[in-house]
Structures are given as C-alpha cells and as structure tokens.
Amino acid sequence: MTGFTHTLGQSLPINAADIYVEIAGNPTGEPLVLLHGGLGNMMDFNAIVEHLPEQFQLIGIDFRGHGKSTLGNAPLTYRQYQADVEAVLDQLEITHYSVIGFSDGGITALRLAAAQPSRIRALVTIGAHHQLDSDDPVLDIYAAMTANKWRTLFPDNVAQYEATNPEPDFERLVPAVVALWTETTAYPGEAVRHISAPTLMVRGDQDHLCTRAHTLSLGELVPQADLFNLPGTGHDALNEAPALSIAGITPFLLQHCTESSSTQAFSTSPA
C-alpha cells in the first residue's frame, strides 16, 4: 500500500478546529483507523502501511494541533481526541471500523472501544496504558517535557510539524500536550472493562513509558486482550521494528476482521 503523504486528504471542521484526515489503501476495503502518538502525526505509520493487507481502507487522522490539524481553542484531552475521531468518522459515514493506536492514539482507541455501544471490531494498541496513578513516575517524565527539550530530542519531527501545520505554534502545542498527559482523570481507567472488541496489546519490552505492569494491568481488565511483547524495542516499537510488529498485527487483524466481515456493513464517502 501507499503511505500517507499529507497531500491527498481533507480537513474537516470540528469544534473550532480543522481536523485533517487522509485515506489510503483499498478505497472500498474494510475501514482501519490509524491514530498516532503525542507530538507525532499519521505519517508515523508509514513504516508499516505498505505491509498491511490490501483488504483494508486506511484512515489516518491527525489529532488537533498535530500534523495538518489546527489546534483550535478546546483544551487537549483524551475525551476531546475521542470526540474528534468520532466526529470525523461520522462525517465520513463510517459506522464500524478497526483501530491501530500508538501511545496517545492507543489511549484514545481504548476510550473509543469502551464507549457504548461500541463501533470497533478489532483493536490494536501500541505502548498505551489505560490509567496512571497520581504517584506514577511516568507523570514526572511527562511534566518535565518542554518545547525546547522536544526540539533537542526530535529536531526532524519539529521541522516536519512546522512545515506541515497550517497554524504552527510549537511553544503553545507542547504545554497543551503535557496537560493532556498529566490529566489522570481523562484516561479511560476502569471503563476498559466494557471493551468487547478483540484487543491486541503491543509493547516494546524496553518501553519506559508503558511498563510491563501497565500493560498487564490493562490485560486483566479487557476480556479479550492478548499481549504481543517485542524484545529489544522501546516505546516506538512500530518504527524500531516494523517487520516484527507487522508479523503480529496482521494475523490478528485478518482473523478478527474476516470473522465478522460477512455480518458487518460499511459505508464511506470519498476523501
């Protein structure tokens, strides 16, 4: 499949922001939504897009303030991300879909899957936790992040953002994302017990943000959760080991999407 380019999509007005969505893959295939991580964008999935089965219609969404989406005036929260994704899919007239979500995208996907009634057929999370306690050391890591620190760590990432976003303001975006990360009440929490979709939890074994304890705790709550642990990889397992990642993700999607494809109808409007 061809990856996302930030040139072939459209921006949809949602709650005082323009949310960018781009469709790749099979235009009549089964919808598979791809949700990126914090301070990233849909193109972060391009390492695996070309290896995904051709039966899928790939729907990339840039979270508000990220990629080609404007920030708007609403505070960044996982609730807002969830509402934005639901609004995008409503405008595209997509009733049911599967999801691959990385980090913030995975946390948002957990909220989407826990909503009742659920619209998700199969769920893949990468490096995503469902809750953080107030004394979790990960919160200190998040709280210490600044725009300058991120620029130092990921200069190419910031340069891409500034070249792509229609209203770039990295000094405003980073504090908004830090506030999202550290707002513990907005994580899906115990609501993940309501997830009925088959779920694959992907984790890099050296991930310092989504620990083994986080993942095992999530797996205890989600009825149909399987763990795919990738040795020798960190938080961004997809880009660190794309071949290994796709080796576990593809069979899972094919199994659970094929099982219900004969009973589930899909409708999409053109991008």
Rank of each mutant, 00 (worst) to 15 (best):
V138K: 03
L92H: 03
G38Q: 05
E171K: 08
S196Y: 00
G40F: 08
G9Y: 00
G25E: 01
T95D: 14
V222M: 09
G40K: 04
L216P: 00
N229V: 07
G40T: 07
N15T: 13
R64Q: 12
T199L: 05
T77V: 14
G37D: 05
S217N: 13
P251T: 12
P166E: 14
E220G: 05
T211F: 04
L58N: 05
R193L: 06
G204R: 01
A213E: 11
S118G: 15
I100P: 01
H51Q: 13
A243M: 10
S69Q: 15
L153R: 15
Y142D: 13
V178M: 08
V138I: 15
L221I: 03
L39M: 13
L173E: 05
D205F: 06
A109W: 02
S245P: 01
E54S: 12
L209H: 07
S98N: 08
G3V: 07
A247V: 07
I48G: 02
F154W: 12
A197R: 00
H208G: 10
P188S: 07
Q131Y: 02
E30Q: 05
G60A: 10
Y187M: 11
R119Y: 10
G40I: 02
S118A: 15
F63A: 10
A176E: 14
H51I: 01
I195V: 12
I120V: 12
T146V: 07
R193D: 01
T108A: 11
A17Q: 07
T211G: 14
E240K: 14
T5I: 06
L35M: 15
P27F: 02
I23M: 08
V85W: 07
A24Y: 00
H129F: 02
A197H: 03
P168E: 09
F4L: 10
L123C: 03
H129E: 00
S11Q: 15
T182H: 09
H96Y: 11
L39G: 04
I94T: 11
F170V: 14
I246D: 00
D136I: 04
Y81T: 14
V49R: 07
Q206W: 11
I141L: 11
T95I: 08
G38C: 09
E190T: 12
T2L: 08
G106E: 00
A144H: 12
G38H: 05
P175L: 09
D207S: 08
I94W: 02
I249R: 00
E162N: 13
L32D: 03
L110E: 02
M1I: 10
M201L: 14
V192F: 05
D62L: 02
G189E: 03
Q255P: 00
L76I: 13
L92K: 10
P223L: 13
D136C: 11
A87P: 06
D140A: 13
N41Q: 12
T125N: 02
Y142M: 14
P198H: 03
M201R: 01
Q91V: 12
D236Y: 07
T263N: 06
G127H: 00
R111Q: 09
L132Y: 06
Q160H: 11
E240S: 11
C257H: 02
P117S: 08
H36C: 10
L76S: 11
E220H: 09
T77N: 10
A225C: 11
A83V: 06
L230K: 05
L92N: 05
V192I: 14
F63T: 05
D135H: 13
